[in-house]
Simulated scan of single mutants.
Amino acid sequence: MKKDITSYEQRAHVGRLLHRSESRLVVALDKELEPFGVTAAQYVILAALWYDRADTAAQLCKELSYTPGAMTRMIDRLEQKRLVCRVPHPDSRRANKLELTEPGRATFPELLAASTTVIDRYFGGYSASELALLESMLERMLAQE
């Protein structure tokens, strides 16, 4: 019996589809967040702070796969918009913690609603079991690192 071998072309096609899918989601999210003056890239930082997935630039870099330089620029922009502030880290004199400002905390629910609109548009037609399967496959792929 022949072993079923997935071709390189098929695997590469899946990679291209993943990239195109992410790009479309980002463009749609950018468009939905435009009235708030926030980009999709900035939104994911705000969401990580809102949900306590990170509270330092280093943790955000790891969570979001950003370079330290790119993260610094993003945090600077969010500070200029008065959505985020840097505060001294209680455990390190050299580090800063990041926090949502009062305007950041007040605005985030509206940003979340805008994000939900995009997510529902792209994933609303999938069943819970289909989403669970996709999620498990993506997690398995990421575990290959």
Rank of each mutant, 00 (worst) to 15 (best):
I45E: 00
I45A: 05
L46M: 14
L46S: 02
L46V: 04
L46Y: 01
A47Y: 07
A47T: 05
A47L: 12
A48F: 06
A48E: 06
A48M: 10
L49E: 04
L49G: 03
W50Y: 15
Y51T: 15
Y51I: 06
Y51V: 08
Y51R: 13
R53G: 14
R53P: 04
R53E: 15
R53D: 15
R53K: 15
A54N: 06
A54S: 11
A54W: 06
A54C: 07
D55L: 11
T56R: 09
T56M: 10
T56P: 06
A57G: 15
A58K: 07
Q59G: 13
Q59Y: 08
L60F: 02
L60E: 01
C61D: 04
E63K: 12
L64A: 10
L64Y: 00
Y66N: 02
Y66I: 04
Y66A: 03
Y66H: 07
Y66P: 04
T67D: 13
T67N: 09
T67C: 09
P68V: 07
G69D: 10
G69P: 00
G69N: 12
A70V: 09
A70Y: 14
A70I: 08
M71D: 02
M71F: 00
M71A: 00
M71R: 00
T72E: 13
T72M: 06
R73K: 14
R73T: 13
M74N: 08
M74R: 10
M74A: 12
I75G: 02
I75E: 03
I75L: 09
D76E: 12
D76M: 05
R77S: 15
R77I: 04
R77F: 06
R77Q: 14
L78A: 00
E79T: 11
E79L: 05
K81T: 03
K81N: 03
R82I: 02
R82D: 11
R82S: 11
R82P: 00
L83W: 00
L83V: 01
V84R: 01
V84S: 00
C85D: 09
C85I: 07
C85M: 12
C85Y: 05
C85S: 10
C85W: 06
R86T: 12
R86N: 11
R86Y: 13
R86W: 08
R86G: 12
V87L: 11
V87D: 06
V87Y: 05
V87T: 14
V87K: 07
P88I: 01
P88A: 05
P88V: 04
P88H: 02
P88Q: 01
H89E: 08
H89C: 12
H89R: 06
P90K: 05
P90G: 04
S92F: 07
S92E: 11
S92W: 08
S92T: 05
R93G: 07
R93Y: 09
R94I: 11
R94S: 15
R94N: 13
R94T: 14
